[in-house]
Structure formats: structure tokens, C-alpha cells
Amino acid sequence: MQNEEPVLTVSNLQVSYDSDLIINDLSFTVAARDILIFLGPNGAGKTTLLRALQNLLPYEGTVSWNARKISYLPPHEFLQRQNLPPLNIEEFYAFKTSDSDAIKAMIAEVGLDESLLSHQFGELSTGQFQRMLIGWSLLDNPDVLILDEPTSGIDIGGEETIYSLLHKFWQNQNLTILLVTHDLNIVWEYATQVICLNKQQMCMGKPDEVLTPEQLKTLYGTGIKFYKHQHR
């Protein structure tokens, strides 16, 4: 059952860099417990949108949150992993909580071995690093989780692990998820809502209803073939 009041209401959002208009007149709402996926080609303004929603960029229009705690994970390529002080994972988690039992429980929840807590940032594989970050982002029990391409650079097996993990947290906690991905399979499998974005809103709704081949061709500017399996 969904709350009546949306978790997020965006009205007439407009974001520019210098004179370039990156997001033009975007309006949408996000209901509690939605998994909203932003879909669009490179340069469509997806990352800009996520940053503007969190007041990390100046914007025009209205962004109104009705959330207790929002956690954000930028693309992991944007996170500094080398040339840092010798920060280990336990110390990184301790930025959010001093409860070592909670830290151990979370590291187990994201499917990582407890021994990794003594490892440094640069010592984790990309897949481990991303799972570790998801655990970190959930440590203070947010009700909204925003992720920007959480599986870029991760192989197919690792990608499935990450999305299964996110889905598990979504099912078990009272989470609303906003997510940027290029992967249409993920949209079909997990999204409750999708927004097609290419500087402006091209579509919004349930994937089944709005992601037609024609819509995808308009969005990406090229023909995309996809196959919907009956066993989904």
C-alpha cells in the first residue's frame, strides 16, 4: 500500500551549466516504495538531475522532499579510492555508526566477509567496493536511496548480485529507490516506474506501459530490439 503523499515532488525543474540547458522543464512525483529508474543516453542529464534533486547543483523550479533520510551513492568511478590515507572499511563505516555489531551485521548483509573490514579502499574489487558502499549508505537507515549507475564497470554476474541485493533491501526495509542505469533488463526486472530522459522528459510510467520500441527509438535515436520473455 502506498502513502498518499509523494516522497518527492519535482515541478518545472530546469538546470543549466553556463548557457547550456541540461534539464528542461521536468516535472514528476515519486511515491513511497517506488523503484524509479531514469533511463536515457549519455549526456541526457541523468547525473545532473540526481545531483540537482539533492541540492548539489543550482537549479530553477521546485524540488520538494517528504523523506526522513536520503542516502546517495555517486557513480563509483567518481569516488577517490587511491591516494587516500590508509582508511579501512571498518573506519569508513564508523563515520556513520560507532556500533561495531551493526557494522558487522551490515557487512554480512551485503554478502561480504567480515575479514574485509580491515581492508583498505583500494584493496576491494569493484564489485566488493560497490556492495560495501551500498551497506554504508544503508547504515543509518534511510527511507530513500539514490544510486547513479551502481554497476558500471562490473561484470554481468556482479551486476546481478548488486541488483538482487538492492531488491532485497527494498523488500525488507521501507525504501524508495531512485536509480540511473543504462541496462534495460534491470528496468524490466525491478523498476516500478521509469522516466525516459533526454534533457527533458520523454516518457514516464510503468515500464510495461511506456517502454515501447518506438519510445526507445525516439529516446536513443536508433532502433533497439528487445524481447520480452513470458516467464518474467
Partner: peptide, 11 residues
Amino acid sequence: ASISPDLAQTS
């Protein structure tokens, strides 16, 4: 902030 200014600000 050294890891990610965005991560720091949204925290």
C-alpha cells in the same frame, strides 16, 4: 570529502 565531495555533502 576527499573520497567524494558529493558523498560528504549529502551526508
